[in-house]
Design a binder for these strands. Structure first.
Lengths: 150, 150
DNA sequence: TAATAGTCGATAATTTCAATTGACTAACTA
DNA sequence: TAGTTAGTCAATTGAAATTATCGACTATTA
């Protein structure tokens, strides 16, 4: 029942970008350092998020990534789905992947996995990156969310 | 956010054993055939469940596996934990794994993953195999058994 | 045009997962 | 007690997914 590292990195990166919103773009490197994500791996992740329409990018000096929409309009569920696919614990219960389950007896379990899927989806679909940013800012904030040195 | 095949097989096998409870033991082969689970793989799974105290076994003719406790006293959460470990989507939020997260900014996400973990745990901890068996029996049973005539 | 910074495809490294194997032990039954 | 049934166990293989890295490329800016 685990979230992939990709999914975790993606949500952390999106949060970092949301904390920065709507200021100038962030470099891959800045996000990487702030969130301790391997730079080249993060590069891939951001590219996927861009292709999926959640980020925009700019090349060259003063380039970088920024959100394509305000944080309040992006849910965690969307981001996780882009990175990891359906939220459902098994396919026969997925809204986005639906697969017909050939076993009768499995059906004794189907409603349960559906309950789980729904519970997870409910939480992740109602939580936006604005919610996350709001709560992140309120924290005692040790060390440095804001980091300006170069 | 996926359930492993192991976890799925284990819960199917436990359901099969619960449907049979408290009659005589089931052979690995019977469970394997009823639930379409590779026999030698199922063997491993049942052994783990036995070692964890959920099953008892008997060798020789008329041997097989049976539940160590009544289905009403075994939750799905327990079985999934035996097979796949903690229910939590990430470790820093797990009740059974516990890991200190070194990042401040991540904490902006921590509460969310905790909510997800709790939601999943709540469902899987309140659902017993007796619940599953009850609902499985009630199904129309498309392939094999016809509904009883009256 | 030099430096910056994202783009892209390929692939390497690692880990996890699913499954298989063979040799073994216990229990029953004829 | 011999023979068969059935679970036990450790080791390992194979495959797939995941995580991560690389190098060459393109766009942008000063």
């Amino acid at each position: 029942m685990r979230l992939s590292t990709r999914g975790e990195y993606a949500s952390r990166a999106m949060l970092e970008l949301s904390l920065n919103w709507p200021r100038r773009p962030l470099h891959i490197r800045d996000i990487s350092q702030a969130q301790h994500i391997p730079e080249r791996f993060l590069e891939q992740i951001l590219l996927l998020l861009k292709r999926a329409g959640y980020l925009r990018s700019k090349k060259g000096p003063h380039g970088g990534y920024h959100l394509a929409r305000p944080p309040a309009e992006i849910t965690v569920a969307e981001v996780i789905r882009v990175m990891d696919g359906p939220l459902a614990p098994i396919d026969c219960v997925s809204v986005t992947a639906h697969e017909v389950c050939p076993l009768e007896a499995t059906c004794g379990l189907r409603w349960l996995w559906k309950d789980v899927r729904d519970a997870v989806a409910r939480i992740l679909e109602r939580t936006t990156f604005a919610d996350l940013a709001r709560r992140a800012r309120r924290l005692p904030a040790a060390g440095g969310i804001r980091k300006k040195k170069r």
